[in-house]
Design a binder for these strands. Structure first.
Lengths: 71, 71
DNA sequence: TATAAATTTATCGTTTTTCGATAAAAAATT
DNA sequence: AATTTTTTATCGAAAAACGATAAATTTATA
């Protein structure tokens, strides 16, 4: 099982690029990429907060719990 | 704005105590308490994962983005 | 109400991980 | 093909989780 970071969906909805989102959220594009591609092992609430704010969404729209055998 | 950790709701639904949940998830009751009472500033996906697994829920059931003026 | 149990708070040390800065590689766009 | 965007990688510093532990507080119970 794992936690999946699903930023792409909301980014597509808001029509915002990685560069723009990184800029808006205040993290480097490199770090956003790590988050976006499930390379991160944790997240600060401050970062999650700014992501939700910028994307106008809830943590549940970004984070997903998935069992190994699912999907 | 802030990220709110809302474990109580799911714990009540599953009728599980803090002690039991800590035990099941594999963290100390002290650390679960910190998480549960919004004293944590970040969370490891491995911990969030085990919480979701044990409570049979999604991250969205536990984490909430809330604007300062709301609620 | 007194006692016991559960939960919360606090501190310390260690380990983990974010995150910035940066550069290079890869991919996508024009 | 050239440019832009995104991803990957590395390094170091700062932040924070987390365990262990103990004390304080709250809650439950006899």
């Amino acid at each position: 099982m794992a936690i999946i970071v699903n930023l792409d969906v909301m980014m597509a909805k808001r029509k915002i690029s990685s560069g723009e989102l990184a800029e808006a959220v205040g993290i480097t594009p490199a770090n956003l990429s790590i988050l976006k591609n499930n390379k991160a092992k944790a997240i600060r609430f401050s970062t999650l907060c700014r992501l939700c704010e910028e994307l106008g969404c809830q943590p549940g729209d970004i984070l997903e719990y998935r069992k190994d055998d699912e999907e």
